[in-house]
């Protein structure tokens, strides 16, 4: 509470360095001669700082920490865990808690795992690699465990099956256009509710809903295989146009930073390996599309 610049230039100016002097007149306690105000800023960090030492952990605390560590270990052993992976610059920095400004700097901190960034000296298979866990940058979802698809948004279903095609719509069970076709077909054929309405419908008991959902995904999977053959010929009903427009708009927006959506004419990655993720080994699945950036 130095008087300097406090209240409209009322006294307290020009104190010599370090010398304490009486509080500026006009302050509520200014009439007290024993009170000194320092015009010099005080040391921000006291020279004789003795941090208090924490008492040792009690039994319960020790047990709960052990549980936490065990849980962490157990989760890190599951295929869902993604390892820490930083870019070369940030990994070699002395302080892991870097000061970062802006999203781009934060993003630049993380490493990209692809063929361009691999270390040519360590990438050659060696005997000791047998003992080192591969570091994952992408959770291995496929087949890791049964999923309850009902609880996931539809755009993640293909991802769960390990069939994520990349691109903004790659997570849908089938391509968006065909899916719409299927949806209408199933509506006409089986007389069931609309897929989207169904999705949020909670009135059924868990079991029934679940069962039907499984039927639905099977149906869609079948439909996708069918649809793959006769690509392009999708029927147009006026309800669909609205959706179509919206998707157009979305993909326009996406095009700015994601250009493999149409996945056709010029696809640099596909040039060499056909763009197929599976033939490239599991742990490098990220690399392919990460090279876009």
């Amino acid at each position: 509470m130095s008087g300097r610049g406090g209240r409209g230039g009322r006294g307290g100016r020009g104190g010599a360095a370090g010398r304490g002097k009486a509080a500026p007149p006009g302050m509520p306690f200014g009439d007290d001669p024993t009170l000194v105000a320092h015009s010099q800023p005080s040391e921000t960090y006291p020279s004789s700082y003795k941090p208090p030492v924490a008492p040792i952990l009690t039994d319960r605390e020790e047990r709960s920490v052990a549980c936490f560590v065990a849980f962490r270990q157990a989760y890190h052993d599951t295929p869902f865990y993604t390892h820490r992976h930083f870019s070369v610059e940030s990994a070699s920095a002395s302080d892991p808690v870097l000061r970062l400004y802006g999203q781009s700097q934060i993003n630049a901190r993380y490493g990209i795992k692809n063929r361009a960034t691999m270390d040519p000296f360590l990438a050659v298979p060696m005997y000791s690699h047998k003992f080192v866990d591969e570091s994952r940058t992408l959770p291995e979802l496929k087949g890791a465990r049964p999923y309850v698809k009902d609880l996931f948004p539809e755009e993640l279903w293909a991802t769960l099956d390990g069939k994520d095609a990349g691109g903004p719509k790659g997570g849908f069970p089938s391509k968006a256009k065909e899916k719409k076709g299927t949806k209408r077909k199933s509506l006409a054929d089986r007389g069931e509710n609309d897929l989207f309405v169904d999705y949020d419908d909670d009135d059924d008991d868990e079991f029934g809903l679940h069962k039907r959902l499984r039927n639905e995904t099977d149906e869609q999977r079948k439909a996708r295989i069918e649809g793959a053959g006769k690509e392009g010929e999708t029927e147009d009903v006026e309800g669909g146009e609205e959706l179509e427009d919206e998707e157009e708009e979305l993909s326009q927006e996406d095009d700015d930073y994601e250009d493999d959506e149409d996945g056709g004419d010029y696809d640099a990655e596909a040039y060499f390996d056909g763009g197929d993720d599976d033939d490239f080994g599991d742990d490098e699945g990220v690399g392919e599309s990460a090279m876009d950036f």
Partner: peptide
């Protein structure tokens, strides 16, 4: 949304979706 997330994190959609699956799970 997923595209926006991809935009902000400079990840691709596929990675974002995989991460989101873990978060939803």
């Amino acid at each position: 949304t997923v595209p926006h997330l991809a935009h902000h994190t400079s990840l691709n959609h596929r990675q974002v979706r995989h991460g989101i699956v873990v978060l939803v799970q």
